[in-house]
Design a protein around this nucleic acid. Structure first.
Lengths: 200, 200, 200, 200
DNA sequence: GCTTAATCGAGACGGTACGTCCGGTCTTACC
DNA sequence: GGTAAGACCGGACGTACCGTCTCGATTAAGC
């Protein structure tokens, strides 16, 4: 038997109700602190356990890998938004674009997200967990707003919603992960404008 | 003293003219083979050296890290294009989009590129090298074609060229690296169409 | 408060009358089976508990250590003798020598005794328990017979009884534990003969 | 291919000539110090490596187990004798008996030997190594002296030499390892006297 | 019969040692 | 001086047990 953890399928580790809340808290705190301070690479299972004052086995009992712990710690600490979810579609789009931008550029943990995405390239479970737990929840309201705008006739109805969403989310992450070119407010605005133009 | 290697700054390791061509060849072949067969994570410096029949020190003498060797091996083996560089801008854009798509989806080494990009998230030297040696050379001709199209009046002149390029390159990499949604020809076409619409 | 267990002094664990007879039986059976099958080293408290279908705490409640459980299981299962306790002293000596020999060479649990003696070298409690519960009960009748033989004038009276006993018991255990030389019936006979010669 | 180490058969670890003399010295010193200070049980491979300022892998490269390291360290540090090897057989016997006695009772490392013998009960390689490298070299001169005494007619010629030797060596080790009764000079003398009586 | 307390199976917990793997440096002998 | 070979120190890995602890469920006495 097995259970799902953030999309991970791991051997059933008995009853989650029996796990120690103190240890769980201490582990997430320690993992996040080490992640933010020194970066993903230098986080180690042993280091997290030591900082949390916890046995190493306790980590392995509840998480299958370093990526899983760090990502759960990330989810536990980092939030984005909330943003206006109704009203002008253009404003919604702009709010989200600037929200991501701020997170990636300013935020302590946010600016480390790219390292997590990097780790996910060789860890399919982490990749799935991140897609489901982090990205999709942030795309969903925008997708909803887009559909409403399409029904209202403010946006072309012949475009697949996810493809349209990618038009604005993708460039931000492309600069974050790939191109190395500047990622700033002016760029976010330009992308949003082009996107709106494409969708009109 | 130091020299530049693919953007890496490494301590000057004596006279490059004296390096063994056989070893160099064997190392790149071994590194690429291991990379394609088992993935980036499981490539090790020792493994490359053993497979190449080479001393471990020889790797460290000429490359600063695993990422550097593997990326040079990748550059050595994987190519994309050439694509038509003049004529209809839309056709050029489409050719490039499909070129990347094919590489990432079909190609042996190409489908491993995402792992290299992943590694680059915690290795700034590798990130710079990849941006300069891999991505920029593939963007340059498209940027040139875009500018000519702008001068010809076929494309809006009030858009920054790199931002415009991102509109088509970014979504492909976003789906590759982040979203987990399908990356196929229909998507590439849709993205190109939207992009052209935005730029008209 | 504390109680004595086979020479161990352990914290008093409440009322022994309340202990579960089923668990006690199952534990001794499991411990002995694991000991005989895989040897002392590979016996673990957790392994015993699992095989006995018993909680780990139940072991720790009634026994202070692995050595204590295994030795009690050993005592519970392994016996030697009885041997003729009166009559010719030489015959008694020979009977005991061959009894030990058979146990060590043939017996399932007996041939594992050397491992228990080994463990006792770093566990004073186990050493004491073994001396009192295993070795002394087997020496006592021989000592008694020796003293009677001394009084009857069949054996020199100027020799300390324990020293004399050692002359025959020691070589058997020396070959078992130390020298690695063959331990067989011919050797046992030779030792007994020499011993009798020394004591005449 | 493999090589012999103190009777151990281990996978061939390349050229012993290349091993670091400094590390080798530091390891034996550290192992012996920890052994004498805290006892065999509490010696760990990691502890030896740390105290020696050596990588853990270096231990595993050259020794197959804790027992092997500690025993080599023991051999390196602990000596016994030399004793007079010719002249009166009784005197030789007495010298050896007192030599062992002194080692086991007084000596720092010597009094730990029983723990090594204990470990050997579950480690056949260690048992063999100890028999060949420690015990046999100490028995050999006495065996030689015994044979000369037999030829000179001072000792019965109808007794197997090793059996006769056991008569005096065994009781000392029996009290050390098994019986828990006092091991002192008076006992050693009594044993030697009885032994000489048996052999006359 | 009811309550109360100790024992039971189960298993999570903080630790410690294991033996392996790899990173990056160094040494040696050959070319 | 570059090279193949490989020993070296360091340190992270994931596993196995240790001995303690907490949890309900069960059981057995004493009221």
């Amino acid at each position: 038997m097995s259970r799902l953890f953030l999309g991970y399928s791991v051997p059933m580790p008995a009853d989650p109700a029996r796990r120690s809340q103190e240890s769980w808290r201490a582990i997430l705190d320690a993992a996040y602190a080490l992640f933010v301070e020194n970066g993903y690479q230098s986080v180690t299972m042993g280091g997290i356990a030591a900082r949390a004052g916890v046995g190493r086995q306790t980590l392995y009992r509840w998480w299958p890998s370093k990526g899983a712990v760090v990502f759960e710690a990330f989810l536990d600490k980092v939030s984005i938004g909330p943003f206006p979810a109704d009203g002008d579609f253009a404003a919604i789009l702009r709010a989200y674009a600037h929200g991501f931008l701020t997170l990636y550029v300013d935020g302590a943990g946010g600016s480390r997200l790219r390292e997590l995405i990097g780790a996910a390239q060789t860890d399919p479970d982490l990749a799935r967990a991140m897609a489901e737990q982090w990205f999709e929840p942030r795309r969903a309201p925008v997708r909803q707003a887009l559909r409403e705008a399409q029904q209202a006739g403010a946006v072309r109805a012949d475009v697949d919603a996810d493809t349209a969403l990618d038009l604005v989310f993708a460039p931000l992450h492309y600069r974050l992960l790939v191109s190395g070119q500047p990622l700033d407010a002016a760029y976010a605005d330009a992308v949003v404008d082009l996107c709106l133009h494409a969708l009109r």
